[in-house]
Design a protein around this nucleic acid. Structure first.
Lengths: 107, 107
DNA sequence: TTATTAAGTTACTTTATGTAACTAACTATA
DNA sequence: TATAGTTAGTTACATAAAGTAACTTAATAA
């Protein structure tokens, strides 16, 4: 198959967002710091995949993971500056969905 | 697992965009009408999945499929008005990627 | 002593995607 | 007439990603 000829930065951004759950994780964290189980139940993702995604996002510098030594230990997940900057993307998706997605189409 | 409590319209939009290849298909079609093989080689997706995605997108009213009876038959894929309206999303991803993705990070 | 809690991880199953060969219908070539 | 070439897919099979549910660790409460 021939090499695609798409801007590599755009491609990387799209490949991030086109991983399942990534968008929702960022969306949730835009509401502020959250813990693992909060994210999990807010989004409805399995612990396994959430764990994967958070590692990805942390490695990409989008999410920050803070360990608070309590018992049981508390982990705070939050957005970095880079993560916060994705709010513009999330907002454009939100506003598009308001204009173009029919509310009843959730079958 | 408890019901997630996210706006269903936003959720639907995100679930669209978080299917692999969807964003790139729309991105490509923003350049204008294209044929199956053009999309396939521009994006680097398998025919099987491209076929799936185009069916999805057609059914969502985002992509229009036009059959031109030549021989072999010609199929034109293009964006509907709803599809074009996603340009705002694609643009926000593009501009974010320009600001925040390092060009060398494509390993 | 047993249960509980948070944040994962592990083993196993199901779904999604990738690969490559194949098809239909017609045309051009030999 | 037979053969090969064309586009837009589809099919069968292989691999990767995601879902499910039980398990782990460390400390504390009952």
């Amino acid at each position: 198959m021939a090499e695609p000829v798409i801007c590599p930065r755009f491609e990387q951004a799209i490949s991030l967002l086109s991983k399942r759950w990534t968008g929702l994780v960022i969306y949730q964290l835009l509401n502020g710091t959250q813990r693992f189980n909060e994210l999990q139940s807010a989004i409805g993702v399995s612990g396994k995949v959430l764990s994967d995604r958070l590692k990805d996002l942390e490695q990409q510098g989008i999410v920050h993971r803070e360990v608070i030594p309590d018992t049981p230990v508390i982990i705070h997940y939050s957005l970095t500056e880079k993560g916060h900057s994705m709010q513009s993307i999330i907002q454009s998706i939100e506003s598009w969905s308001q204009d173009w997605i029919k509310p009843s189409a959730d079958a």
